[in-house]
Design a protein around this nucleic acid. Structure first.
Lengths: 214, 214
DNA sequence: GTCTATATGTCGATAGAC
DNA sequence: GTCTATCGACATATAGAC
């Protein structure tokens, strides 16, 4: 968000800058998601927005900085649905809502999930700090909610951590394994209906599997 | 003495070759799994087995060929548990067994799962053919078994494809997201007990969630 | 078969004209 | 701020001595 010397709220230059900045970030997001960090070249990003690569490296000092910036933009998006599972919510409402939102996000914004999945696969080099802070807080908080539900006998006793892993993996699969799924189902792309069926199936199994009284 | 062609069952040279071949493949598996295809250098593999990189490229003509070979070795391992779900098996036996085997595989052989996860994330460039053939056959066969179970009222009506995706993602997560999980659970590595708890939780939710009579 | 040295190409990053 | 030209590092792959 900041650069060499950006202090005043001047907006003649800022407008052009912001336009380019956002275009670059958007293209970078797509290409990083598709090819991974090492598999992405700065010039391919530059080509995608019709600029010479020196220009891209002028805005963001390095490839690594650009990558970090992309991840920062995506992190909040990636985590936003978890805090809908609150202590006072009831599993029969909160769980279906979470599953639906998370799968819809896999449908509409697969880049976030894919970039983080690749990060995690390869050691979370650039993401470790965030994982250890924001995400861990959210994680522990959500586990406590699950434990509270168990204590109130709203759901069966299930190891809260593993229940949450199950929720994550089975909803994120629609982004991370989307290509695999579409190949196996013999179609170019998953349709709206496929995602709806996914939501139905996951919700059905999780709700009944947790013993939620409906 | 001999040349590139290898026809006879001579085993003075063959033994050395096989030893090196297997060592290289094994090291390549680890490094590809950790760093991805683009993130892996031939010389890092060569270093891991104490050979000059020219030697590695002598055995396998190119980095890409070596990668393909590694994937071929892992493919059967990756798929081997799916054909335990057969038409005459009962879900109350077959599902727990599958879940247990798949999570144990994530524990003992995470490389296979990780390499394929990265492949799939980045477009399955090298894996497309296999996905479209062997894996798709297995996939469709297993879906038919699920449908048969539904028809016999052994499990609730659930879209078979999505049930299978759920099984895959929630068991593979223990390899693909293993690092993330261990960070969130505040430990260097997942313990035997963690995997046991994972097996318990997933089995419990899936069995009850599918309405399997026990 | 094995290893050293090198050819060839690509990428990230910078220098410097405009 | 923007672009062209180029540098330097490193990666794959090969040539050729042993």
């Amino acid at each position: 968000m900041n650069n060499t010397a950006e202090k005043k709220t001047d907006n003649k230059i800022t407008k052009a800058r912001k336009g380019n900045l956002q275009q670059i970030l958007s293209a970078a997001e797509d290409i990083f998601a598709k090819n991974g960090y090492k598999g992405t070249t700065v010039s391919s990003i530059a080509n995608a927005v019709g600029l010479p690569k020196a220009n891209v490296l002028y805005y963001f000092k390095s490839k690594e900085k650009l990558y970090q910036e992309v991840m920062n933009q995506l992190l909040s998006l990636w985590m936003q649905h978890m805090n809908e599972i609150t202590a006072d919510s009831h599993p029969k409402d909160a769980l279906p809502k979470y599953i639906k939102n998370k799968i819809k996000q896999s449908q509409n914004h697969p880049n976030a999930s894919r970039i983080f999945a690749a990060e995690v696969l390869h050691g979370a080099h650039f993401l470790r700090t965030s994982l250890q802070q924001e995400l861990k807080d959210q994680f522990q908080q959500t586990c406590q909610v699950f434990q509270a539900w168990i204590d109130k006998k709203w759901i069966d006793p299930i190891h809260p951590e593993h229940l949450l892993f199950m929720l994550w993996s089975s909803t994120q699969a629609y982004a991370d394994h989307g290509l695999q799924i579409s190949i196996l189902m013999d179609k170019e792309e998953l349709t709206e209906t496929d995602f709806e069926h996914g939501i139905t199936a996951v919700t059905q199994v999780i709700l009944k599997g947790c013993g939620v009284k409906t």
